[in-house]
Design a protein around this nucleic acid. Structure first.
Length: 419
RNA sequence: GGAGAGGUGACCGAGCUGGCUGAAGGUGCACGCCUGCUAAGCGUGUGUGGGUCAAAAGCCCACCCAGGGUUCGAAUCCCUGCCUCUCCGCCA
């Protein structure tokens, strides 16, 4: 969340940020509630001070075996008043907190201003579209021919968007995950975590999925748990309500998890094959850093994600998201889009974001800096990478004229293949 | 799921026969001293959030898992929830 003090003194900036992000947030009501809240807090403090001081007088008189009836009579009244003011204050605070959680993060100045993805800019292009020398098939044809997927049966047992990887397809998927996990640990210094796939409401609120995206998530009613849409959620929240030391930072984690998304509202769009799924696998990088280091950390994480695509020799581009395309919690985001020759499109395989202190405030993740001052950390995360579209790009890029596929050399050891 | 014990500051750990206890002591951390170096030792300091203030100091309020209750007054008593530990049951 955004610091209310910052909002108070930067109202215009906040309004611009909200509208640039295509969000709706009721700043005026929030500010009015803030006003009320502070007034009530003042009343509460004043009367509480009275209670505390008379309380001491009573204690002293009792000790000295003096009569304190007058004080006691006054205190009964004060106690009543306190109850009233407290009830009022609690009500206002609740409403205030609820509203504050709906205020989005503020984009960084470097972020291009724009309404939607058409205003995104291309930050970088790596490699170029390969010449296959024959007509490219799309990944679904290739997968079917090579018996890598069984989507109909996945749909039968769960519904569309729940893929089954079969035989070599399953091994290839597993190899991709293992390769990426090891790569980030050995080359980029991340520590691996295996985390819960179902998390509670507080956790979902901490990273900013709630309250906004409740409709997009699978929910387990009985226990009020949500299936995670990304490892970002459990991993970022591991330090919720903790105070770390500056010596602990930066912390860099990599975690593989399945991800679950209802994708409400995006039915029928780009759904062929593995393009858009309700369950998919992703290797995620998460960093906790000191505020001064977050801009650089973002660039490093982008490079970490790119390194995977480069290792596979896949053509891709880096997209600099505009304000309207940024997520609710993000200050700045790069997307990685890999080229899929058969599908004929660039497909998003990674999103690398800097959240500043936004998530750290929500989840209450702080650290003590070198001067002993307690501050919020900055959090970042980036996919490194999501597998389905990566698989698409690999199959379509490395398909052969006879319908078979080549496996990039770096991946071969993970499949027990030797050439 | 059943029975018991417990949840205190960055961490460990007293207090829990209600009233100068925001909380002893220790560790850690910061600064200083000392010592060929390191280790050890000595001294001082060290909670968070909110309010008041131009700012600092000072002062006020809240916070001893969370939410209620009892009371003039609760870290301390009662209830509920969550979590941890031990035992039993069940089970991969």
């Amino acid at each position: 969340m955004i610091d209310i003090k910052f909002i108070r003194s930067n109202v215009e900036l906040m309004k611009t940020a909200i509208s640039n992000k295509n969000e709706k947030a009721d700043l005026d009501t929030l500010l009015a509630l803030d006003e009320q809240r502070r007034k009530l807090q003042f009343d509460f403090d004043t009367i509480k001070a009275r209670q505390n001081s008379v309380s001491q007088v009573i204690a002293q008189k009792k000790k000295a075996r003096e009569n304190a009836d007058r004080e006691l009579a006054e205190m009964s009244q004060v106690a009543e008043e306190i109850k009233l003011v407290a009830a009022n204050l609690n009500g206002v605070n609740e409403e205030f907190d609820r509203l504050l959680l709906t205020i989005p993060n503020v984009p960084q100045p470097e972020v291009p201003i724009g309404k939607d993805e058409t205003a995104n800019t291309i930050a970088k292009i790596w490699g170029k579209q390969p010449e296959l020398g024959f007509e490219a098939k799309d990944h679904l044809e290739i997968a079917t021919q090579n018996k890598l997927l069984d989507l109909p049966r996945g749909a039968k047992i769960s519904g569309s968007g729940f893929p089954i990887y079969t035989g070599f397809g399953a091994r290839l998927e597993r190899a991709l995950i293992s390769f990426m996990l090891e790569f980030h640990q050995q080359k980029h210094g991340y520590e691996e975590l295996m985390v819960p796939l179902a998390v509670n409401r507080k956790t979902m609120t901490g990273t900013g999925q709630l309250p906004k995206l409740e409709e997009d998530m699978y929910h387990i009613n009985e226990d009020d748990l949500f299936l995670i849409p990304t490892a970002e959620v459990p991993v970022t929240n591991i330090y919720a309500d903790e105070v770390l030391s500056y010596k602990d930072l930066p912390k860099c984690y990599v975690s593989y998890t399945p991800c679950f998304r209802r994708e409400a509202g995006s039915y029928g769009k780009d759904t062929r094959g593995l393009q858009r799924l309700h369950q998919f696998n992703k290797v995620e990088m998460v960093r906790f850093v000191e505020p001064e280091g977050s801009a650089q950390a973002l660039e490093e994480m982008l490079a970490n994600a790119e390194a995977i695509l480069q290792a596979f020799g896949l053509h891709y581009r880096v997209v600099n998201l505009c304000t309207g395309d940024l997520s609710f919690a993000s200050q700045r985001t790069y997307d990685l889009e890999v080229w899929a020759p058969g599908t004929g499109k660039y497909l998003e395989v990674s999103s690398v974001s800097n959240f500043g202190e936004f998530q750290a405030r929500r989840a209450n993740i702080r650290y003590k800096d070198k001067d002993g001052k307690v501050r919020h950390v900055h959090t970042l995360n980036g996919s490194g990478l999501a597998t389905p579209r990566l698989m698409i790009a690999l199959l379509e890029t490395y398909q052969q004229a006879d319908g078979s596929i080549l496996i990039p050399p770096v991946l071969q050891p993970w499949l027990g293949i030797k050439l």
